[in-house]
Write a protein that binds this DNA or RNA. Structure first.
Length: 280
DNA sequence: TTGTGTTTTATTGCCTCC
DNA sequence: GGAGGCAATAAAACACAA
């Protein structure tokens, strides 16, 4: 026995568990389980009375007792001594039995709560994972599209820049042309041409390209179907939409390199949810 | 009837608080 | 140091399939 008493009584000293030989009571069952149990309890009470002991067999609490305990547990899942004694008196139980019931009930509640929390966390995790996968796909699509566009720009640059430099733009020095024509560290090809427009690639604006040019550039018929991406054919800009004598300045306004932006969500890195947990 | 899995009741040992 | 809480566990009670 662990404690003499939590409430000052001797209830903890009373062995509630029956002696070991009780285990074999099943072997002498002749009647139905309930009836046999009743007989057994009566038999035991008699024998205990004879022995002068106040031992109680370990048995389940009645439905009414459990209901009352549940009700009290709902009100407050901790049990102060006065309440324990009062409840025990009301239900005809030992105060220690009430305390044990509350203790076990708290343990059950905790287990259930953990299961519940696990379910919620799992659902959140699954949703985030789905989100992550979608973003990953978007990222891949964007990267591919960007590569394609850059290849096109480069190709056009190679085929057309020499002409425009030599024939159409005598007002620029060779240095100016070099400055406008090189691949800078931000990763986008700058274009010199004769169209007055700006191409803005902004990773912070929902993966869309922004085109600052003449009003005709906002022609909605040129939009492609993808909602997150508003690309355009650079040949259209250079060849059809603007007068060839106009000057084109393709400018990148990225906070960081386009390449970096495309790899913002690394494919190899699984979501850790760390931010989620620390934020709660 | 019996074996087996689950639930409930109770114990034990350790820890914290006053 | 005693009281009480908790985790781990034992053991009785119960449910149920075969």
């Amino acid at each position: 026995m662990k404690r003499i008493s939590s409430s000052g009584s001797l209830d903890a000293l009373i062995p509630i568990c029956p002696p070991k030989e009780e285990k074999n009571s099943k072997n002498k069952q002749v009647y139905s389980r309930e009836f046999q149990a009743m007989l057994d309890s009566l038999e035991e009470e008699d024998s205990l009375e004879e022995a002068g002991q106040s031992t109680e067999k370990k048995r389940r609490l009645s439905i009414d007792q459990v209901k009352a305990l549940e009700k009290n547990f709902e009100v407050e899942n901790k049990l102060e001594p006065e309440r324990k004694v009062k409840l025990a008196e009301e239900l005809g139980l030992q105060p220690r039995q009430v305390a044990i019931w509350f203790q076990n009930r708290r343990a059950r509640w905790k287990t259930k709560q953990l299961e519940k929390d696990y379910g919620i966390l799992k659902a959140n995790y699954d949703a985030l994972k789905l989100d992550y996968n979608n973003l990953e796909q978007e990222n891949e699509a964007l990267t591919a599209k960007l590569k394609e566009l850059r290849a096109k720009l480069k190709e056009e640059n190679n085929s057309e820049s020499s002409h425009s430099v030599k024939e159409d733009s005598p007002k620029f020095s060779q240095q100016d042309l070099c400055d406008n024509n090189h691949d800078d560290s931000n990763g986008i090809v700058k274009e010199d041409s004769n169209v007055n427009a700006q191409l803005l690639i902004s990773p912070s604006s929902s993966s869309s390209f922004q085109f600052n040019g003449p009003s005709s550039s906002s022609d909605s018929s040129n939009h492609q179907t993808c909602s997150w991406f508003q690309p355009f054919d650079s040949r259209m800009i250079l060849g059809n939409m603007f007068h060839p004598s106009q000057f084109v300045k393709v400018e990148e306004q990225c906070m960081f390199a386009a390449e970096e932006s495309c790899n913002f969500f690394s494919v190899d890195q699984a979501p850790t949810l760390q931010w989620y947990f620390t934020g709660q």
